[in-house]
Write a protein that binds this DNA or RNA. Structure first.
Lengths: 214, 214
DNA sequence: TAGATTGTTAATCGATTAACAATC
DNA sequence: TAGATTGTTAATCGATTAACAATC
């Protein structure tokens, strides 16, 4: 993890995929892998793989390839997978519940420490071991725990005010499932938007195009 | 919608965002917009916006700008938003339920016509107006309806076999929420992968990096 | 030694940005 | 007419690919 400086967003997008594939290989008991094999799996080129990895250091052995276990751990380190940043989730609807379970299950990058909803019927219910609190509690909660990340699963209309409140509590990173684009407003926040409807529209477009081509 | 030829994947990724923003402007009753204003909202440049739109046609008026309503409709047409491709969803767990509701609610690109699960306890329950069927019914169902797209919300281990079955039924496009990479196997399928854990890892990486920079 | 494969530099390709004539 | 803003071509920038010496 030596080099760094300016890592392009395309490399960042590929890192988790490298990690996933290496974990799979590791689980299968495969101990060595070449840039060519990695490339094949990534629908990429050997050059690309070597270039990507060289952003962070020299992990391979000339003539031999890469050690699967070592490279996996290196990339885990680069991604910061064991950081366990304290995170809260706001909005315990369908998506919120699904995501809460996912995050609690992964347990790597983030530790889910609280779930909030403005609906009193949700307050008190338990999702993946965590009792849902009312959104009024957010400020107090964030002051107590050192919440780093907020997972936003509330309807679009409620997001802007919520984001402002969370920002006020010191939260500077967001995993955003709403249609509202957080991060336009503040320039010191890290936002990962998951716009499912964008994804759906892209699929729609690509289906349409593939049908036109025939 | 005249020009076309080779549209880059970066343009495709931006199209839904243009659409979302135009819909917002339209809802606000704003009738004209310039490439500069669009760019600001897209965190992009006026050049980029004009270049993007010119892949598909000439939608603006020199000296004036673009008509919001017209451009919105043009992009809707380009994306194929009103196609309503018949889609089924497989895997009625947390994420499946959330996605089913989302798709049923949007009702634009796809029309959800069936939901399937292998768990008998789920079979017979109703999700957003659709009764869940057993996965054994998939083949018969696909033969009857002309299912275009399958939304995959089953655990990783079950995906490969499922994808093969669906491919056998003529399904050639997938919205994939599992960790398994569909599409490595067949080259005539359109796959939109939503790898939530990749998204999470990217966020983790970017948080880590922003903290190191301080 | 011969074969394989890395790290790294150079070449190519594509995407973004700048510039500007056309025109409302 | 002057100002604004498009469509489009040219210039720049960055990302991908190719090439090759180093070395296991």
């Amino acid at each position: 993890m030596a080099k760094r400086d300016n890592i392009s967003s395309s490399v960042v997008r590929r890192l988790p995929r490298y990690y996933r594939f290496l974990r799979e290989l590791d689980a299968k008991g495969i101990s060595r892998v070449s840039s060519g094999e990695l490339a094949k799996r990534m629908s990429s080129t050997a050059s690309q793989v070597r270039q990507d990895l060289n952003c962070f250091g020299e992990f391979g052995q000339q003539g031999i390839g890469y050690s699967v276990a070592q490279l996996k751990d290196e990339i885990a380190g680069i991604l910061g997978i064991s950081c366990g940043y304290p995170a809260i989730l706001v909005g315990a609807g369908n998506i919120g519940t699904a995501i809460a379970n996912q995050v609690a299950y992964e347990k790597r990058c983030f530790e889910l420490v609280g779930i909030f909803d403005s609906d009193m019927r949700k307050v008190g219910t338990v999702i993946s071991g965590i009792t849902v609190s009312h959104t009024d509690e957010i400020e107090r909660f964030c002051r107590e725990k050192d919440v780093v990340t907020a997972i936003i699963c509330v309807p679009k209309g409620a997001v802007e005010e919520l984001a402002d409140r969370l920002y006020g509590c010191g939260v500077r990173s967001f995993w955003n499932f709403s249609h509202f684009d957080i991060g336009m407003k503040y320039d010191d926040v890290t936002v990962e938007n998951v716009h499912l409807s964008d994804s759906l529209m892209q699929l729609c477009f690509r289906i349409k195009r593939s049908r036109e081509d025939n």
